[in-house]
């Protein structure tokens, strides 16, 4: 799968990139700003988006995912330190979205990707 990483922590981006590489996926782009998500998705048409919620810039991860839905149905896997029900509920209102609470280890990420519906994984 091709993946877009949206994360403001550089080390986390590197870590998730390594996780995905080891799991056989390709990271096509990464950004710290929600405002760039739509453009990058248009440019690279990723099959999976790893989305942090707290981002650089004005737009948070939930808003970026909502905006993304205007052009893409690619699954969004939130990776965030937020665990409050309110934020979880709001985040999951975006279609085809899933939620993992940081810190995320490779096995968790693997399990989450494996849990995606087959059509999404094969897309």
């Amino acid at each position: 799968m091709t993946a877009l990483i949206v994360e403001d922590e550089a080390v986390s981006v590197m870590l998730f990139r390594r996780f995905l590489d080891r799991l056989g996926h390709t990271v096509v782009a990464a950004t710290a700003k929600g405002e760039e998500v739509q453009a990058l998705a248009e440019a690279h048409n990723p099959e999976l988006i790893l989305m942090d919620i707290s981002l650089a810039g004005e737009m948070n991860g939930i808003e970026a995912a909502t905006k993304l839905r205007e052009i893409s149905d690619a699954p969004v896997l939130y990776l965030t330190g937020y665990s409050a029900d309110e934020i979880r509920t709001r985040a999951l209102q975006v279609s085809n979205s899933f939620f993992l609470v940081k810190p995320v280890v490779e096995t968790q990420l693997s399990a989450a990707i494996e849990a995606l519906p087959p059509s999404m994984r094969e897309a």
């Binding site: 922590e9 080390v11 986390s12 590197m14 870590l15 390594r18 707290s54 965030t80 330190g81 937020y82 665990s83 409050a84 934020i87 609470v101 940081k102 810190p103 995320v104 280890v105």
Partner: peptide, 21 residues
């Protein structure tokens, strides 16, 4: 408190990343 926990978890994630790297 949520924000503190969020930052704690983020920090742990970053520490884990450092160790991995």
């Amino acid at each position: 408190l949520n924000e503190l926990h969020h930052r704690t978890k983020n920090s742990i994630q970053v520490i884990d990343g450092f160790i991995e790297l």
